[in-house]
Nucleic acid binder design. Sequence first.
DNA 1: AACTCGTGGGG
DNA 2: TCCCCAAGAGT
Length: 344
Amino acid sequence: MRVIAARLLEWYDRHARVLPWRSPPGGAPPDPYRVWLSEVMLQQTTVAAVKPYYERFLARWPSVEALAAADNAELMAAWAGLGYYSRARNLLACARTLVAEHGGRFPGSAAELRRLPGIGDYTAGAIAAIAFGEPAAVVDGNVERVVSRLFALDNKPAVRARAAALTPAERPGDHAQAMMDLGATICTPKRPACAICPVRSDCRAFALGVQEAYPIRPAKAARPHRRGFAYWAEADGHVLLVTRPAKGLLGGMRALPTGAWGAAPSLADAPLSAEWRLLPEPVRHVFTHFSLDLSVACARVRRDEAAGEWWPIERLGEAGLPTLFDKAARLALRERMTETAIAC
DNA sequence: AACTCGTGGGG
DNA sequence: TCCCCAAGAGT
C-alpha cells in the first residue's frame, strides 16, 4: 500500500496537471475558498467546462465575504450554462453560513465541512485534504475507478475502505489529486493507458486483463421523452421572462414561461392570451433523466397584462438563461425574421 | 435507497 | 446519431 502511494506521488510530481485552482505539487496549500469553489463547480462537471466559470467567479467574488454579499439573481445568472443549479443556491447558502456562524472561515476538518450546504462526503474530504492537509478519504468517480481496478473490487464500501487505507499521512492533498489525475488521464473509463501507468505492476485488474470491467456499473435506466411549450411574448422590444421556483428542474433560474411538460402538452397554459404562432421546429434538449422537444410559441402582446419580468431583448445575454431557454430564445429571434411561424 | 438534477464533448 | 460520462449532493 505504501509503495503504491509513493509511486503515485512520484508520478504526480512530474505529471500533475496545471489547473487554475491548484498549487504545484509539494507547494503551499491553496486558499480554502478557491478549493471549495472549484470543487463545487467540478461536481459532475468537466474541467474544461469549469475553467471559464471559475475564473469569472473568482474575479467577481474574490472571497467568501464577497460571495456571501452577492445578489441572488446575479449569482444564478453567473452560473447559467454550468448546470445542476442547486449547486449555485447551496454555494450562496454555504458562504452566508460561513460568514454568519464561522467568522468567514472554513472549518478545517472534513467532519465539520460535511455539515455545510452543498458539501457532501467527497467535497468535504477534498477540501480537508487539499487545503488543510487532513488525511481524509477522497473518493470521487476517478478514485473509485482507480481503486476498484487496483484491487479488483466490485462494491463501493470496499473501494472506500481501500482508498482510506491508501491515503498517506504526508501530502494527503497531493495524493488525492494524484489519484484523480491518474483517473482522468491514464486510468480512463475506456481504453486505459496501462502501458504508461505508474502503478501498473500493482494493479490486480491489469494482471487479470480485466481493466475495463471495473468499476461495475449499474444498468442504465431508459430515458423517457417529453414534449412541451415555451412562450416568447414580445412587447416593445422586451420579452417576458419568469423566475422558476427554487426547487426542481432549473430551479431559481430566469426562463421563458412554460406549461407542464409531458406526453401531450397543450397551449392552454400560456402566460397570457394572444395569437400564438408556433415555430416550425422545436428545440431538442437532453437532460440526464429525460429528453425534451420544446416547441416555442411566439406572440406580440401588450406589455401590461402578464406577471413576470419584461426584459430588453438586446440585453438578453445578461439575463442568465440556462441552456435550454437560451436555445429557445435564439430560435425565436432567428425565426421571427423569416416569418415562417405557423399560426395556431 | 432510488430519484432528481444539466451540459457539452468524445468515441 | 447515439451513448457515455464528468472532482456528487439532496431528498
